[in-house]
Nucleic acid binder design. Structure first.
Lengths: 216, 216
DNA sequence: TAAAAAATTTAGATAAGTCTAAAAAATATA
DNA sequence: TATATTTTTTAGACTTATCTAAATTTTTTA
């Protein structure tokens, strides 16, 4: 088994990974709130365990087994978030920190039974897909609200920013997962947008539009 | 907040404490599967934090604040065990190790909501009382089966030994929590007992009788 | 393309929690 | 009650994960 610190590094590398680029030491240091030198130390350790491919000065990528572990941690995180919101009635802005602890509970049998208990949910309370028991992720095709046009409409299906502040703001504007919105007007000056949602109009800044995901 | 190691020491001190005697270094070392010297180090640390009263060579007792923390950890442990058995359908011999991890999830709001979600259970799957939000424990008055007489009867309400082996044995003999039994015969030679349970007779050794608790 | 800036790694240190071996204190025993 | 035994503590070391400061490599820029 891996230590808590190792698990957190693997998860962070996964989140920072994209198709082309490898993940840099500094990116990890920033995300993990630690120093670059600490990251270097841990990268050597993870490379020794064959969980990452690491070339000094060239950044890292997860190996297949590293990715499998990362996906399992993310699966646990998102299932626990779903549990906290759907069963214990927490709000979507309250669950992240708790799930950060719960994702490290080791038993897979436990998480699979929890999954079954909740009816195999596909998305967590923020709209993020929950990897299944094999690490498969149900990617749905979402667009940033900032990238759609006047008169387009769709269903709010995710957020890019997970900060409690942002989530609380969305809640107040009733811009929550599942709500149907359409774009009434885009203000050219600042790219802010006026949206129709339920029976009212909401005016959102371009920063908000840039962090809100919609399914057309 | 306290570290995981500190929490485990507090919990162990609580479990080893009784009214008169203070808890010795060696008792703790045995229970925690560690060395006496490690225990001494930790006792100094806990004493510095005013969680225990510690006099070198004289053993330890929990202070009020140490006891409060220990009771909260035990509350979490037993509520999670209840959850695992009642909601996720684990058997009573499977849940201890998982709960050992889950008891360290820090949020009290979480555990209080879990308590409510499950309807404020009073006892865990092994019959142990669950401390309430204020650390109050509902002690019920149980007797060891080894301490009762022929023709006495009562309800199985707890176990002194929590090992999976013992729990699985009890399960196989249908000697589980809530079952009504009565003593048919006590064999003088080895103090083994013949019990009536449901519609069959079960012959148990004195070791078993010594670890099974009954409410008369 | 050489110098400057930025990113990364190395070296050496620290804190938490553990260990072994030796010393000291408490308890048991003859 | 002196000695042997057991228990506990102390001293010094190790591991994990972190840090600061210095050195090295890569990237940018003039």
């Amino acid at each position: 088994m891996n230590t808590l610190a190792e698990e957190n590094y693997l998860k962070s590398i996964f989140h920072l990974s994209d198709a082309e680029e490898s993940v840099s030491t500094n990116q990890l240091a920033t995300l993990l709130n630690t120093k670059a030198s600490s990251v270097t130390d841990m990268l050597k350790k993870l490379a020794d365990k064959a969980l990452i491919n690491y070339t000094p000065y060239q950044g890292v990528r997860l190996t297949l087994s590293g990715e499998k572990i990362a996906l399992n941690i993310i699966r646990k995180h998102r299932l626990w978030e779903y549990f906290l919101v759907e069963k214990l009635n927490f709000k979507w802005d309250q669950v992240h920190e708790m799930a950060e602890e719960m994702e490290h509970i080791s038993s897979n049998e436990l998480i699979n039974r929890l999954d079954k208990f909740m009816g195999y949910p596909k998305f967590d309370p923020h709209g993020d897909p929950i990897p299944d028991i094999n690490g498969q992720i149900n990617h749905h095709n979402l667009k940033l609200v900032s990238a759609i046009e006047v008169n387009d409409s769709g269903t709010i299906s995710g957020v890019k920013n997970h900060s409690p502040n942002f989530l609380q703001y969305l809640e107040k504007q009733t811009l929550t997962i599942g709500k149907i919105i359409s774009v009434i007007e885009i203000i050219p000056f600042d790219q802010s947008m006026i949206l129709q949602t339920e029976n009212k109009e909401v005016h959102i800044s371009s920063e908000v539009a840039n962090n809100l995901l919609i399914a057309l």
